[in-house]
């Protein structure tokens, strides 16, 4: 299979976005059109007159990739080509959770046959690590700096997948670059059943402040600590894909990252409680059956 993301783009070493994008592009099943939102991936792959993607790419603005993709899909429909082509959005967490949420919600509500993939590095990285609605509790960012009076971000991360699960969506899943086969399987489904949403955690060495060699390790730990549980929502039901007999303590995930280095036992404990609570909620949703 021809490589779509051909050469190393201009990303930082150890960039989670680059790894995720490479996996996604290797597993295109049909000729595909990519729609990017403004952000790290877009600026590192489309600097004129070059393109790192061996396929058509559209970039319009930060917050409207879902609307642009809707237009692309409808145009394909009028040309009778909508079944021959996949329209795929690759968007950051800021573009998805915050500024572009309305457009995404509208796209899914209208049933546009688009596969929307959120590459979540938990902050506005392209503008230099500012807090987003995806930034976790107590993370230090440039707009939630730590200081004598500050422990970093004071709010919890938005549960984007559950919110989208309450939309009329055909398929939705969380995925990890450390769970490579699981990711590919989910991508296949997301391309087959649209509108779909894939939420992939993409660690960012620069923004999270960790050694670039730990990108995959951190992705794995995020899953194994239940910080980022892997699940799917399909046929109105939620299914947890990996359940651990004994989850790893959240400190395993936190301690490798500079953005959490200011935390004391008390905050770590609070995060642990939050992670456990959120996980129980997922288990309950799974047990509840067809609630979506």
């Amino acid at each position: 299979m021809a490589e779509i993301l051909e050469k190393a783009p201009l990303t930082c070493s150890g960039c989670g976005l680059a790894i995720a994008t490479r996996i996604i592009c290797r597993n295109f099943r049909k000729p595909s059109i990519l729609v990017l939102s403004t952000g790290c991936l877009e600026v590192t792959t489309t600097l004129y007159p070059y393109s790192y993607f061996n396929c058509p790419v559209l970039h319009v603005a930060f917050e409207n990739a879902a609307a642009v993709a809707s237009g692309v899909f409808r145009a394909l429909k009028t040309q009778g080509r909508e079944k021959e082509v996949d329209v795929i959005v690759l968007a950051g967490d800021g573009a998805t959770f915050d500024i572009g949420f309305q457009a995404l919600s509208g796209m899914v509500e209208r049933g546009e046959e688009v596969c929307y993939i959120c590459l979540d590095n938990e902050a506005y990285m392209n503008t230099g690590i500012q807090r987003s609605g995806a930034t976790p509790l107590f993370a230090s960012t440039t707009t939630t700096p730590t200081g004598r009076m500050s422990m970093g971000k004071l709010e919890r991360k938005k549960k984007i997948s559950l919110i989208l699960g309450m939309h009329p969506i055909a398929y939705l899943a969380t995925a990890s670059i450390a769970y490579h086969r699981d990711l590919i399987k989910k991508l296949e489904k997301a391309l087959a059943k649209k509108p779909s949403f894939l939420h992939i955690l993409t660690p960012c060495p620069t923004g999270w402040r960790f050694d670039p060699q730990h990108t995959v390790t951190l992705s794995k730990l995020a899953v194994e600590t239940n910080y980022f549980p892997l699940f799917e929502i399909e046929d109105n039901k939620l299914k947890l894909n990996y359940k651990f007999e004994k989850r790893n303590p959240i400190s395993d995930f936190l301690k490798l990252q500079g953005r959490f280095s200011h935390l004391k036992e008390e905050e770590i404990q609070k995060i642990q409680e939050m992670v456990d609570e959120d996980y129980i909620q997922l288990v309950q949703l799974e047990e509840a059956g067809e609630v979506f």
Binding site: E42, V43, T46, L47, Y48, P49, S51, F53, N54, C55, P56, V57, L58, H59, V60
Partner: peptide
């Protein structure tokens, strides 16, 4: 085709 509409 390799093409970008809306490059940086």
């Amino acid at each position: 085709k390799r093409m970008v509409l809306g490059p940086l």
